[in-house]
Design a protein around this nucleic acid. Structure first.
Length: 332
DNA sequence: GCCACCGGTGGC
DNA sequence: GCCACCGGTGGC
């Protein structure tokens, strides 16, 4: 089968929810609750909520968005904030996106330990203005990647959006806010754009997994590569790409960071090498989100420690690191 | 059989 | 804690 290009400008295409590359994504409301076939979501003005599940944006909104007080100290941080957010609720309203990145079919995982559920997906891209700190929607993934590539040296301002929104200024209301209705994730800055003809895909994993997302590069041939090692090997096998200028520096498998704390399962405590067998083992493995985290929006307060039943379900036997000797026996 | 999605491991 | 890599596997 052939893959479509993720063509953000062509609604309807695709197979993707995968958002590419990028950045902060707010993958939206997610899964695990009732499947939603069609993006329901009410919204007024553009973003609003898709209600449904909460998904906390909370403390982070406070930490990262800084739209209030000491702006001086924040300009630097602000430049680093690119966001992808879930589309589920976007689409309409005053923000007329040229593209419908979102038009993705719900993904459903099929892992045994997870009741079939809808996986989050990123469908739109936003970047924070380095001046007013308001989030501005970026019309296409490609434009987003272009901005992200040099976001540190070339901060994004509302004026930057004049290319697609002539009238926009810092006086205009934000395109979206971290209202807790979606899952947000902060992207890494300065990730190179993928080589021409290649696509960088970001797949958000389900909540409670061991990692937040995966990045894949799709070669023009359709081949999916999932690590620098694979890219290097692929380029060696296809020197024509190298001849065309494709180089390793154009790849990055960095994934965005979820704003929602605890979206990713905590890794069990790992004893140091050659641990004392008699030493008690700390087994904190899981801190669940009960969906009430919205309540903490903007509150930098203490984390929630809810004694949820899930804490027990997810408990795992702590793993021990291999000793050096064992490691030596294991070939790479 | 392929592949998307996930967990585990090793390293820092 | 985060990152990188890669093996396993259910569903198609």
């Amino acid at each position: 089968m052939e893959r479509d290009h993720l063509d953000l400008a062509s609604p309807g295409k695709a197979d993707h929810n995968d958002i590419c590359g990028s950045s902060v994504a707010s993958c939206g409301d997610n899964m695990k609750h009732e499947p939603k076939d069609s993006r329901s979501s009410a919204r007024a003005g553009g973003i609003e909520t898709s209600n449904q599940n909460h998904k906390d944006v909370a403390a982070l909104a406070e930490e990262e968005e800084h739209n209030s007080d000491d702006e001086d100290n924040h300009s630097e941080d602000a430049q680093k904030q690119l966001v992808l957010y879930d589309p589920a609720a976007v689409g309409a309203g005053e923000i007329a996106l040229d593209a419908d990145p979102v038009n993705s079919q719900p993904r459903r995982n099929s892992f045994p330990n997870y009741a079939s559920r809808i996986l989050p997906s990123v469908g739109a891209f936003t970047v924070q203005c380095a001046n007013c700190f308001k989030w501005r929607l970026i019309p296409t993934k490609e434009k987003y990647e272009e901005i992200r590539e040099h976001i540190l040296e070339q901060p994004f301002y509302c004026e930057t959006a004049h290319e697609w929104r002539a009238e926009l200024s810092c006086d205009d209301p934000p395109d979206l806010t971290q209202d807790g209705s979606r899952l947000w994730a902060i992207d890494k800055p300065n990730i190179a754009q993928p080589p021409p003809g290649w696509e960088r895909l970001l797949r958000i994993r389900g909540e409670g997994g061991t990692r937040f997302a995966d990045v894949y590069y799709v070669a023009p041939s359709g081949k999916r590569l999932r690590s620098m090692v694979e890219v290097e090997k692929y380029l060696q096998e296809h020197p024509d790409y190298v001849a065309q200028g494709v180089s390793m520096s154009q790849f990055s498998f960095q994934i965005p960071r979820p704003l929602q704390d605890n979206y990713v399962k905590k890794r069990p405590y790992r004893p140091a090498l050659a641990p004392d067998e008699n030493e008690p083992v700390n087994r904190i493995t899981w801190i669940a989100d009960n969906g009430d985290t919205d309540l903490r929006l903007g509150m930098p307060g203490p984390p929630l420690f809810e004694p949820l039943s899930q804490s027990f379900k997810k408990k795992r036997t702590p793993s021990k690191r291999m000793s050096n000797a064992d490691a030596a026996c294991k070939s790479s």
